[in-house]
Amino acid sequence: METVYRYGTDEILYNSPGEHWITPASPRNEWQTENMPFWDVKMREHYFDGMHISSININVHEHIRLVTNEQGPLPGMGFVKRGNLTTTAYSGGGPRRFTAGQHNVFMNPYTAVSTEIPAQQNLEILLMSFQPERFLQLAEHAGPVMGQLAESIAANKPTPYLKGPNMPLTPRMLAIILEIEQGCYRGGLMNLFLQSKLLELLALQCSQLEAVNKGETRPAGLSNADMQKVRDAREILLADLHNPPSLSALARQTGLNEFKLKSGFRKMFGRPVFSYLKEYRLERAMELIRGGGKSVTEVAYETGYSTLQHFSNEFRKKFGLSPGSLK
């Protein structure tokens, strides 16, 4: 896959012939780094059983526009943890802006007419894809969303789901992404672990799409500008787990009144503001404990709990066991 790197002014910076992920020369399961004048990249890739996962962290110095040549369909998913970018897909639909905490499905997450990445930001994304035959195998009897995606792939046509808005990352999705990034298995166990996580993310995404199509999570009464403000509120809320803002402060920072913030947050993310924060803290705590290397006290502090007792009580209520028993 050829990639052309350009400044925002369209001046060519760098031209990379690239390679196709389906037939890698060897597995690349370790973190790789690339330091260029316009960005610093840290990337970890996994290839297994017709599937691919790529965790990418980029410190962007310059406004970059990536141009790639069109490739065949590789059904996949893109999750933006931090930062923002704008893509224009070969499948049409015009430019699509992604901000922190959003995800969507793609006919091919690696190729686009262009991808605009603004300067002076940290961008964290997770990309996943399948060989078409593997995806078609998974889609069999897996529900209406997978079925329609499979039909689009078989006909080499754009997926209808790209016509709708990007979807919000849930606390469970964020927790799975953290698990993937911290995965410490080797060989076949790593492949088994990652396959389970990829399939869980796929199931969560399809469930979200089915709910949207039924109108269950459609944010009625919210304009596009309001929706962006609610997304901003979520990012501010999770930025400092030790000192999250009050509801009134969050409303002031995002320019929404408290009623619209509360109702909009519930509509977009499925739960009240501070219920979402609590869920996120506990899911993150679970994965930090599973990842090892930190004491229970350290995990409690890192996830914003002021006392170990409070953390242990909340953890037990949610997961049915104490954090110490996992250690």
Rank of each mutant, 00 (worst) to 15 (best):
L237M: 03
Q228W: 02
L126K: 00
D232T: 15
L277I: 09
F269H: 03
G143P: 09
L13A: 09
L201R: 06
P37T: 01
L198T: 13
K278C: 06
K317N: 11
M173F: 04
K197R: 15
K317Q: 13
Y14Q: 08
H103S: 03
T115I: 14
S54H: 11
A89M: 07
G164C: 07
E200K: 15
T99A: 07
K81D: 08
T3R: 09
A154Y: 05
R186C: 11
H52A: 12
D10H: 12
S196P: 03
T170W: 05
C206I: 05
Y305C: 09
G187L: 06
E210Y: 13
G8R: 07
G221Y: 04
E62L: 07
L192M: 12
Y185G: 01
I117W: 06
F106G: 11
L174W: 01
N108C: 06
M227V: 15
S196V: 09
E30A: 14
G221L: 02
L162S: 13
L136P: 00
P168E: 03
K278Q: 15
P171H: 05
M146F: 14
Y5H: 14
F265P: 12
K262E: 12
S295C: 08
I22W: 11
L201F: 08
D232K: 15
L241W: 09
P171Q: 04
P95I: 10
S114I: 12
N35G: 07
L222C: 01
S54M: 14
R316S: 13
V41D: 07
Y276A: 01
L138T: 06
P219V: 06
K229M: 10
G147W: 04
M173N: 02
I289Q: 11
